[in-house]
Amino acid sequence: MATSTLGPTARILRLLDLLQSRPTWSGTELAERLGVTTRSVRRDVERLRGLGYPVRAEHGAGGGYQLGMGRRLPPLLLDDEEAVAVAVCLRLAAGGTVEGLGEAAVRTLAKLDQVLPARLRSQVEAIHRSTVTLDSLTPSVDATVLLTVARAVRDTERISFSYSAPRGRSERRAEPYRMVATGRRWYLLAYDLEREDWRTFRLDRMTVVRSGGWRFRPREAPDAAEYVRRAITRSGYEHVARVRIAAPRSDVEQVVPASVGILTAAGRQHTILEAGGHDLRWIALHLGALPWDFEVLEPPELVDVVRELGARLARATP
């Protein structure tokens, strides 16, 4: 066992972080992570309890230390009103109203929600239900769905949910692996138990998400970000366009987000863009807005649409 280089305060904070990272830890596992004896772990657990953190100890097979729901909010230097304000702000940020904070907000909210007393949680729910945001471009994600999925990913628990897709609504059972945020939209990479394959799900299309406590052994999974990126730029679209852009990939990726299309370098001065869409006219319009020349590779129908759009724009100029 390695000797701990952490002081008592730093060690307690590290212990708290470990307890929040997964449902159950054995005393031996915690001792190894902290570089101390199991007796020191027991003492540090008692210190956390004295500070108000509800750490439970289960004996026997499958037991260990667990961080449970608390009767009072642990000393985060927040009073009740401040805790409610933080939770509400995190929910808004998780929903995409604060650019760039979505993923961090969900992780933080999952930790705060774990110890937030029921009386404060109901206040947060009431405020969140009575708040709307002006965002007509991106469907909102219910904060409860975000939290339920985030906890299931963390705890490796199966989930069931209703899913609305263009082909209709269906009931799904899955093993959640990772959540991926792209722009202001959230996706879940999960193993679909009915289809026995990996699938991506948009969280704004998921409702009645349930986690019944059924744990699963993680499978060998694809790279979540890459899988979702390819799925959302190719799958489910009537048309997939391929164009050659007269600019290096390093320049193009500054303008074209990863959620829009797949970029592949074609030499030093050109880039291949693959992007899907339901309407060729919209694809042509977005391509025309790029600051570089481009050549349509496929589909052939897109060539005619681009020509038509070019002619219309030319007629609009006196």
Rank of each mutant, 00 (worst) to 15 (best):
T264P: 00
R210K: 06
V124R: 02
S250R: 12
E99F: 01
G52V: 08
D142C: 04
V252C: 05
V45A: 04
R11E: 12
R229H: 15
A85T: 14
R229A: 10
G212T: 04
L18S: 03
G276Y: 06
C89L: 13
Y163P: 07
G7H: 08
W186A: 01
A143Q: 06
T5A: 13
R217M: 09
R281C: 00
R234W: 00
S140Q: 14
E301S: 11
R185A: 12
T28Y: 01
P117K: 00
D80S: 12
I127Y: 06
A311L: 15
V84F: 02
T24W: 01
E194L: 11
R172C: 12
A190G: 08
E175M: 10
S40L: 08
T133A: 15
R210D: 11
A265G: 07
R249N: 02
T156Y: 15
T271I: 04
L73F: 03
P291H: 07
D204L: 01
Q269Y: 12
T233M: 02
L290V: 09
Y191T: 02
D113L: 01
L188D: 06
A110M: 03
A181G: 09
T182I: 10
C89G: 15
L134E: 11
L48V: 05
L188F: 01
L280C: 10
M179F: 01
L76M: 10
E29T: 06
D251V: 14
V180A: 03
V86P: 00
L302D: 11
A181Y: 14
R121D: 04
L116F: 08
G70F: 01
W292C: 02
R39P: 03
T271P: 03
L120W: 08
A266P: 00
P291C: 10
P176T: 06
R169Q: 13
V36N: 00
Q269W: 14
T264M: 01
V252F: 01
L30G: 02
E103G: 07
R217L: 12
G236M: 05
R215Y: 03
L287C: 07
R121T: 05
A258P: 03
E298K: 00
P23W: 02
S259R: 05
L18D: 05
V260K: 04
V41G: 09
R49I: 09
E238D: 10
E157D: 06
V55G: 05
T182S: 13
V240Y: 03
T144N: 09
A174S: 11
L48S: 07
H270N: 02
W25D: 08
R33Y: 14
T108H: 11
L13V: 13
R312E: 15
V86Y: 02
P300S: 02
A150Y: 14
D192A: 13
D142S: 09
G35D: 03
L297K: 08
R72G: 01
R185Q: 14
K111C: 10
V256R: 00
A221C: 12
V260F: 15
Y177G: 04
L78W: 03
D113S: 08
G267C: 06
H270L: 06
W198I: 06
R195Y: 07
Q20A: 11
L309S: 13
T156R: 15
P54T: 10
